[in-house]
Nucleic acid binder design. Sequence first.
DNA 1: GCCGTTTTCGGCCCGACTGTTTTCAGTCG
Length: 587
Amino acid sequence: MTNTQIAELLRQVAASYSIQDERKYYFQIVAYQKAADSIEKSTSQISDLTKEGKLNELSGIGASIKGHLEELAKTGRVKHFDEILSKVPKSVFPLLKVPSLGPKKAYKLVTAFNLKDPNTVIEDLASIAKDGKIATLENFGEKSQSDILRAIGEYGKGAGKTTRMLISFADELAEKLITYLKKSPDIKQAFPLGSLRRKLPTVGDIDIAVATASPQKAIDYFANYPYKDRIIEKGIASASILTTGGHQVDLMTQPVKGFGSLLQHFTGSKHHNVHLREIALKMGLSLSEKGIKDKKTEKVKMYETEEEFYSALKMQWIPPEMREDTGEIELAQKKMLPKLIELQDMKADFHIHSDYPLDPSHDLGHNTMEEMLKKAKELGYSYLGFSEHNPSISNHTKGQIYAILKKRKEKIEHLKESTKNIRIVNLLEVDILTNGELAIDDKCFEYLDGVIVSIHSVLKMDKDQMTKRVLNGLSHPKAKILAHPTGRLFNERPGYELDFDKVFSFCRENNKALEVNSWPERTDLPYDLIRQAVDNGIKLVIDTDSHATTHMDLMKYGIWNARRGWAKKSDVLNTLEYNEFIHWLNK
DNA sequence: GCCGTTTTCGGCCCGACTGTTTTCAGTCG
């Protein structure tokens, strides 16, 4: 079973407990939900962790759930789960995916109308709603009926939070909304928060915080956004809309005096906030978006900045990218948070495809080397690495490939002499073939300073074979960087599997670096592997993999992802001076 | 069911909004 499937199973157990007796099982429900969240977020496969006996390493998994998961791995089922799940009809569970339906409503609907088939329950409910039968049910009315019908329709279309946006897309969408909001005289400040501020690679909805003295006017103005499809909800302090593009936007307001608390609250993550509130409780305090309440006096103190808010809890301000409750709070209490890498720290980009005509195995860039260099200078870099794909091996003889690379080297040498204000590294992106050999032979390395290696074909290989293939490719002394190490592409493919324990130890022992590819579709390494790499002392390079000058602006996405992986300046080779990098390349 | 710089027992985050109700349950983040 995949992590997603296991997480869903645990959520079904939680839902079943809710339906049976929410009060009695409250803490079990919360525990199962926490465990599900934890499993869903983990990129280690639960099946692997179970085999290795490492399930305890995931927060929220204790002795009991660990035992259940081991039983699941061994026998394919869990007696305890089966017993709990058998208390409610199976057709309840698909309905939980429909927005606005939770365990209680789903159960009422399923039992009231005797909906038994989990495969058709959503359509069946829609036709019952169309017949006007839901409105007659106790605690349901006309409005609930039409809401359910619409929710099913939107769910079917993937509107709202059911499909996640790439952060690059969400970033632009939020920018448009912020521009609109700032035109209102009643809105003093407006910031995108939530997972967008925490820089997750994909974002479910857009969260915006607004500082205002007249919340009602600000909310009315927001609800009149010209590109809205409908208002989802609208109250005195917050509102939600669905845009014409089918994306959900949530807005929350606070007065300027309390804006810091709102920023903190609405940035999340949920787990980070829950943990902070548990700490606050022990200090006799209670946290909310309004501020910090003293439990004795019931007085709420407001905070204009996040720094003051965190300081009141006796901890350092925590960078949003770290707020996932994975150890950052404990470090902030000890005032030992790492200083994360920043865009300004970058002195180079190593993964650049120019239009130099070497008849490559994959796509060529669109701009000349000179144009790429000019752009690099504009970005404030002091050097740049060219790394076009290797010449295609099916279209050329070995001799032809030598000649192409020799000529390219001459071009680069000429550029090095004629270009005074920026330095150049002569790299190449080389395919690792199916058998683990590189797509160029040893003689080619005379014409190169070093190479980036990567996988571009035959992605379906089992984990052990793929790991051998990659490590074999990396074992050449001049192969220094592994590009887009997992090969994942959002909304396209999950990537191939690698044994990262082996990859990390190989890189550490042989002085190799792993790439953080900045393309929003890739963000590869994924951030949790970045964090493991950093913990293992592996050096990273953050690259744009540019095929045009405009792509060189994508660096910020790589930086964001690296920050989510807790990478510091010292972990990233792009922050080295030219001479230091060349020294590393030749080590 | 999980967890530990008050604890291996006794705690466990907080508030907004909606619809269906006459004071609240359900859902969401």
